[in-house]
């Protein structure tokens, strides 16, 4: 359960103040599938970063599963990110020197999970995105779509309740974009809350809920 109320986020660039988010109120129920849409610079990524606890709002309240997160110390927020939230980025952000398997394993390593337990969970995650045969490949040996599916496997390996995807198909052609979207929607069907930022109206139409943004504010819902 996500509850945003009166979220403000401003950036100071020189003398200018940019209002990236203005008085944003938003509630997302568990298991929801929402697409965040809007023109470039409207604050979609900023909203997603705040939802993912990567960024703190300047004002307002953000309750995640009933916990007020804006006042939590960084250590607790890192823990919530580790256990409750999975990220999928437009640029994949895989570590180039690590194999697909090791990239997926990373959240488990950071969480201090024992190696034997890790192996089984990574295998399942990779299997769920259909990449079992590619486990030993490094990112530069994979196609864009495959890389993004590795990133999805990594985002889900800790079984988080919330998946945040910022233009996950932005760097992909239509066919591999379709595969990625299907992988994400499959997660949503298993009960994970899914928030996707996208420019693509076709992709936005597939979501059950559309959040329209403009100039830092939520226009329509």
């Amino acid at each position: 359960m996500i509850e945003l109320a009166g979220i403000e986020r401003t950036f100071r660039v020189g003398d200018e103040v940019v209002h990236a988010l203005r008085a944003v109120d938003l509630s997302l129920a568990d298991g929801e599938y929402a697409a965040v849409m809007g023109p470039s610079g409207s604050g979609k990524s900023t909203l997603l970063n705040i939802l993912g606890l990567l960024d703190r709002p300047d004002a307002g309240s953000y309750r995640l599963d009933g916990i007020e997160t804006t006042t939590l110390p960084e250590e607790r927020r890192a823990r919530l990110r580790r256990e409750r939230i999975g990220f999928v980025f437009q640029a994949f952000h895989l570590i180039p020197r690590l194999s697909a398997f090791e990239n997926v394993e990373l959240p488990l390593v950071l969480a201090g999970v024992a190696p034997r337990v890790r192996r089984e969970r990574v295998r399942q995650s990779l299997a769920s995105v259909g990449l079992t045969p590619r486990a030993a490949h490094r990112p530069d040996q994979l196609s864009g779509g495959q890389r993004q599916r590795v990133a999805i496997a990594r985002a889900t390996v800790m079984a988080p309740g919330l998946i945040l995807a910022d233009e996950p198909t932005g760097n992909l052609d239509r066919a591999s974009g379709e595969e990625v979207v299907e992988a994400l929607e499959a997660l949503n069907r298993q009960g994970m809350t899914l928030v996707v930022v996208t420019h693509d109206p076709a992709l936005g139409d597939r979501a059950r809920r559309r959040v329209q943004m403009d100039d830092g504010a939520v226009l329509a819902d």
């Binding site: 960084e74 990110r81 570590i95 950071l110």
Partner: peptide
């Protein structure tokens, strides 16, 4: 830098 950002997004603490 991007790798460090990723680690933090995945839940790494400062001390990690």
């Amino acid at each position: 830098t991007a790798e460090v950002g990723l680690l933090k997004a995945l839940g790494a603490r400062q001390r990690d």
